[in-house]
Design a protein around this nucleic acid. Structure first.
Lengths: 220, 220
DNA sequence: CAGTGGTCTAGACCACATC
DNA sequence: ATGTGGTCTAGACCACTGC
């Protein structure tokens, strides 16, 4: 499909034919086609056949990616200004999301992130590290990506719950993002979980409305 | 899990045990567990086992649902005020998204949608019907849901591409949604595709920031 | 009616984690 | 060594589509 041999609308050979041609079992053919269907490449209709829907994959919010990864994918140059990187007692709203007691020490991170030099998003993170893990602001500054820093310590990021809403820029946000006071901003709040389902990070990401859009592909 | 018999963190019986207890094959057990894993209920680790991640499902943008379906799921009463329902020449921005020439007749729909009587979202739709399909504003008013109306004519909605951004309320939006002028609003733009990958609807959904949040669950 | 995808069974081998 | 999930095969029946 990506080579263009199978244009949009084309019908794929039936499963049994592929079984013979490829020399694998029908289950195996089906598993592969189910992946393609899930990714939106093909559509399958019982009794009729399988048709090609699209020939390239568009990536969006469907998967958990970091800002750094997102921007690199768009071939934009990422830079970060670290406004704060310190250990402090967790404020109650963050503690609640992280499932810990207010006042428990957490790593607080405040970053202004730019793409090609233009300020795009403002990032507030409260990180509650598992026992034994260490956090170095110098390493973060060097690596750029919080998730990369965590994964380097064998902390596996698994999933996140996010909410998206619109807010009006307060004074600090307006100043840092170079927008007027009261300008509409997008705020994404999220809790990120590790492999063991422990909440490891609570973040608030605020982005300038005109400069950053979320793109999503959804299927019914 | 939803009954609470299996709390978060609990380990599920291994596949072979479930095979015996339930009297089904291992593949069948695996298929069921894969669904649970995809929905974020469980997490599976090779060689270790399967653990419970969450005990209830939060529904979000991950699947394409209509406003009507969303609200009914939350047990809220949906009502709609149809501000416009007419056929007109497609404006260029809508035509582009629908892949048709500007000026082609499309059905234009403008609705104010309320949950429990409170105005929540403002919906602009441009519908480009396939040949032979008919559109009745009376039916829409009765059914409430555009997608239900289309599906009743055997038009299958398959997928959508959406973008989310923050905007400031203009005069009309402020009046209809009962918010101050310039208040931050969430705008979701989307193109909805049918089974044959034909764009059938272009919509703009504007929602009041404080009254409507999008929730998303993403996995890495 | 034949052909399609949807589902299930029974049995096998593998890589990996744990002890 | 044992038990776990990941993958594959071979064969079967079903519901639905289209002729």
């Amino acid at each position: 499909m990506e080579r263009g041999d199978l244009p949009v609308g084309a019908t794929l050979p039936p499963e049994v034919a592929l079984t013979r041609v490829l020399g694998v079992s029908r289950q195996t053919v089906r598993r592969a086609m189910q992946e393609l269907a899930y990714e939106g490449y093909i559509h399958r209709t019982p009794g009729r056949g399988t048709t090609v829907l699209r020939t390239k994959l568009s990536r969006g919010l469907t998967r958990l990616t970091s800002f750094t990864e997102d921007m690199r994918q768009r071939h934009q140059q990422v830079s970060s200004q670290i406004l704060a990187c310190e250990t402090l007692p967790a404020p109650s709203h963050a503690a609640e999301k992280l499932g810990i007691l207010a006042g428990t020490p957490v790593t607080f991170l405040h970053r202004l992130r730019c793409a090609d030099g233009v300020p795009i998003i403002l990032n507030l993170s409260y990180v509650h590290l598992p026992d034994g893990a260490i956090f170095s602001c110098a390493d973060l500054a060097e690596l750029g990506s919080l998730y990369a820093l965590l994964e380097r310590q064998n902390i596996t990021i698994l999933e996140a719950d996010r909410t998206i809403e619109a807010i009006a820029a307060n004074e600090e946000q307006a100043r840092l993002l170079a927008t007027p006071l009261g300008a509409p901003l997008l705020r994404v709040e999220g809790v990120v979980y590790t492999l063991d389902h422990l909440p490891i990070e609570y973040h608030q990401v605020v982005s300038a409305g005109e400069r950053y859009k979320y793109a999503i592909h959804v299927i019914r």
